[in-house]
Design a protein around this nucleic acid. Structure first.
Lengths: 251, 251
DNA sequence: ATAAGCCCTTACGTTACGTCAATGTCAAGG
DNA sequence: CCTTGACATTGACGTAACGTAAGGGCTTAT
C-alpha cells in the first residue's frame, strides 16, 4: 500500500508535522516523492515507522533510534524481544504506581500512614532502568535459580543439610524483619545484623559475593513487585527495610 | 521532616533543577528559605510533589497541574481515584502494545501477517484517552454479550458436551474459591490451581489466550461491581482472591 | 585551611514537535 | 469550467520542561 503524509499519520496516530520532521532529520524518508512534491510512503516505511514508535514509546530519543535502525547489525527480532522486555518492565513500574495510589488513598482514609520514601515508590523510572541494565540479568538469573533451588536443591550441589541451614537462615531473616520494621532503624545494629544474615544467605547460591551486586539486588527488592510481595507478605514495609539495611551495609 | 533540594530530589527521583524550576513557575514553592537562601521543603510540600508526579506521569502539563492543585475545589481523594482509573487505562494500552509486539514477532517468524492497521495498535494514546469512556462502555457491553454467549453457547460453535464441561468448570471454580478465601493465599498452590482452572474456563470462549488479557480481566473483576457481585455472592472476598491469584498466575 | 559536596542565580542550549503563514494540488459538485 | 474544501508543500518562529555550564557562597570533615 502507498500512503500520503496524512494517510500514514492517521494510520499510525502521529501528526503530519511529525512525519515531515522525521523526513527532515533523516529518520524516516518517504519511499518516493511524486512530481508535485508529495511524500509517498510504501510498506517498508510503514514497518520502519512501527519500529520507530516502539522505541519512542520506551523513551528513546530520535537520534538514538536512527542510529539503532541504521546500524548494519540491527536485527528486528532481537529488537522486538527487547521491546517486549522493556514493556514488561514498564508494566511492573505501572503496577508499583497503582499500589502507591491505593496506599495513598487508604492512608488518607485513615489507614496506616506512609513513609516519605513510600510516597515515591514507582516514580524512579530512570533508576530502575539503570539498575535493570546493570543487575537485571544477574537478578533474573538468580530469581530463576531460586525457583529451581527450592524445588531440587540437591542438583545444585547443596547437601540436604546445607539446604536446611539455608532455609533456617531465610526464616530467621524474615522473623527478624518482622520484629524490626517500625521499631529499629535499617542503619542501626539490628538492621546491619539482618543485612549480614542476608549476605550469608546469598552466599549459599552466589558463586562470588560483591557489595555492588548485593546493593543492586536490594534495589530490586523494592523495584520488582515479586520481591516486594514476598517480603511484605509477612510484614508490610519489610522489603523497604531490608533494602535500606543492605544499602547501608554495602556502603 | 525537612528536606533541601538535593534531599527531596533524591527522595522523589527528580533533579534539583526540576525542583528549582517548579519553584520558579510557582508549582511547588518551598516551605521556607533559610538565611543563606537555601530552599527548605516540609511535609506538605512532599505530599504536593507526590501529587504533581502522579499527574506528570499521566502526561498532564505543568501549568494544568498547577491549575488543578490550586483549584479551590480540588479533592485529593477524587484525584487519586482518577489517577487510579487512568493508570489502569494506561496499563491496558501497554497490554495492547505487548500484544502488538508479540504478533509482530510471530508474523516475522512466519506466522500470520499483520494488516497495516494492526501494526499500530496500542500507539494511539490520545485516541484511547478520548475514547476511554466509550471504550469502557464497549467492554461492559461486551461483558453483557459474554453473558449472552454463555447462556446459548451453541451459537458460538460449542457442542453441548463442551458447554456442560464449561459449566462444571465454573462450578468448580466457585466451590474452590468459597473454600479457599480466608484460609489460603492467592499466590499459594491452591490459589494457583484456581487461577489455572480459570484459564481453562476462559479458553472455551477466548480465541487466543494471553496472560496480559487474563490479568486485565482479573483487574475487571474487582473494578466492575457487577463482576464483584457475581463472585462475592457466594463468598465475600472471592473476587479479590481470584484477582490476586490470577495476577500472580499471569506473571 | 583546604577539599568535597552541597547550595544559589543567571543564562543559554536542546528535543520534538505545534502552530502559523503563504502557497500549490487534487477530486468532487453545481 | 469553475469553485470549493481538504489536502499538500516549504519556511520560520514558538514551546515545554528541563539539562548544562559559569561563577560564586555555605558547611562539614579531615
Amino acid at each position: 500500500m502507498e500512503y500520503t503524509v496524512k494517510q500514514l499519520g492517521d494510520l499510525a496516530g502521529v501528526s503530519g508535522r511529525t512525519l515531515r520532521y522525521y523526513d527532515q532529520i533523516g529518520l524516516l524518508k518517504p519511499h518516493m516523492v511524486n512530481e508535485s512534491g508529495y511524500r509517498i510512503y510504501g510498506p517498508k516505511e510503514v514497518d520502519r515507522l512501527q519500529q520507530i514508535l516502539f522505541y519512542r514509546e520506551l523513551g528513546v530519543d530520535l537520534s538514538t533510534i536512527k542510529e539503532l535502525l541504521d546500524s548494519p547489525d540491527f536485527n528486528e527480532q532481537d529488537a522486538l524481544r527487547e521491546h517486549h522486555r522493556h514493556l514488561l518492565a514498564k508494566r511492573r513500574q505501572l503496577d508499583l504506581l497503582l499500589q502507591n495510589v491505593e496506599q495513598t488513598l487508604s492512608a488518607l482514609e485513615g489507614g496506616k500512614p506512609m513513609s516519605d520514601q513510600e510516597k515515591f515508590i514507582g516514580f524512579k523510572e530512570k533508576l530502575i532502568k539503570e539498575n535493570e541494565e546493570k543487575y537485571g540479568q544477574e537478578v533474573r538469573e538468580k530469581y530463576g535459580d531460586d525457583a529451581v533451588d527450592a524445588s531440587n536443591a540437591k542438583l545444585m550441589g547443596l547437601t540436604e543439610d546445607k539446604y536446611a541451614e539455608m532455609q533456617k537462615l531465610a526464616e530467621e531473616i524474615i522473623a527478624s524483619l518482622v520484629k524490626a520494621v517500625g521499631k529499629e532503624r535499617p542503619e542501626g545494629p539490628e538492621g546491619q545484623r539482618i543485612a549480614e544474615l542476608h549476605r550469608k544467605w546469598l552466599s549459599f547460591t552466589w558463586p562470588n559475593y560483591s557489595k555492588a551486586a548485593h546493593a543492586g539486588l536490594a534495589e530490586m527488592y523494592v523495584a520488582d513487585e515479586r520481591f516486594t510481595a514476598y517480603y511484605d507478605q509477612h510484614k508490610k514495609g519489610a522489603a523497604q527495610f531490608l533494602r535500606d539495611a543492605i544499602t547501608a551495609y554495602a556502603k
